[in-house]
Computed example of a mutant assay.
Amino acid sequence: MRTKLGALLTGPTLVLALAGSLLVAPSASAAVHPTIDRARAYAAPQGGKGGILAPYVTCSDYSTQPSATWVLTDLGTGASRRWHWAGADHRTRFPRVDPGRYWSTIRAACAGTFAERAQTLVVTEKTARRTVSQAEFARIHRGMTARQVAAVIGYPGYRVGGTAGHRMYRLYDRMAFTQTAEVVFWFGRVEQKYWVSGGGDRSRGAGRGL
């Protein structure tokens, strides 16, 4: 198991992540320093590739532009890929990868203060049992409970966000890469559903037929 040890240095400040958590040296707390989020793994469709989204990096004053170097290593093959960028935009660093285990390390800098973060990521392969098909989605209708929906789909999905009054939102993975379906519950029963979660479908009346 790989570990990272925190270190305090004179001169340029070093901030290290231990077991995926970012550590900030006391001397850096008042200085502008990098903030590094976790990298995120996305499951692969059956027979396809998943993806890993690079960590999002910002500076603590929200005005200094960070620079970052990210290295992603396939722990199965030992092959590594490297990216370097300046600024907060990380969304173009989203490599498609085979299912497996990966080691992510990133080093970022803000005005002479450095930070590092390391973590292990697992890219899984989706299965029919843990995704919703269009045929299953068509069987969801208004008034069903979350338990009844889970019985149709084959798994309970996952709750997102908070509740708005008595409204609850649950997402269900689709086989397509990064795609989810959304079901909205009102007082514990289905009120609406969207084959594409979060938006586009809504303007096209995705909930019709409930």
Score class of each variant (00 low, 15 high):
Leu72Tyr: 11
Tyr62Asp: 15
Trp83Cys: 09
Ala181Tyr: 09
Ala150Met: 07
Lys193Asp: 01
Lys126Met: 08
Glu125Val: 05
Arg96Cys: 01
Ala111Pro: 00
Val24Tyr: 09
Ala108Phe: 00
Trp195Leu: 09
Val97Ala: 02
His33Gln: 10
Val183Trp: 07
Trp186Leu: 15
Val160Tyr: 12
His33Trp: 06
Ser29Gly: 03
Ala176Val: 09
Ser104Tyr: 09
Met144Tyr: 02
Glu136Asn: 05
Ala79Thr: 12
Phe177Gln: 10
Phe114Glu: 11
Ser60Gly: 03
Arg82Cys: 11
Lys49Asn: 15
Thr163Arg: 12
Leu72Asp: 14
Phe137Asn: 01
Asp89His: 12
Gln46Asp: 13
Thr124Gly: 08
Gly6Tyr: 14
Thr73Trp: 01
Thr35Lys: 13
Gly20Cys: 04
Arg142Lys: 13
Gly87Glu: 14
Pro66Cys: 03
Ala54Gly: 05
Gly51Asp: 06
Gly205Met: 05
Ser203Ala: 14
Gly47Tyr: 11
Tyr102Leu: 06
Gly76Phe: 04
Ala17Thr: 03
Arg96Val: 05
Ile153Asn: 01
Arg101Leu: 10
Leu23Val: 11
Ala79Pro: 04
Val71Ile: 15
Val122Lys: 06
Leu171Thr: 06
Ser67Ile: 03
Arg96Asn: 09
Gly76Arg: 10
Val196Asp: 13
Gly50Leu: 08
Arg159Asn: 05
Gly200Met: 12
Pro95His: 10
Trp70Arg: 02
Trp195Cys: 08
Gly100Phe: 01
Phe137Ala: 03
Met1His: 10
Thr105Pro: 00
Phe185Trp: 07
Arg38Lys: 13
Ser63Tyr: 13
Leu22Ala: 03
Leu75Gln: 07
Pro156Thr: 07
Ile106Leu: 09
Leu16Lys: 02
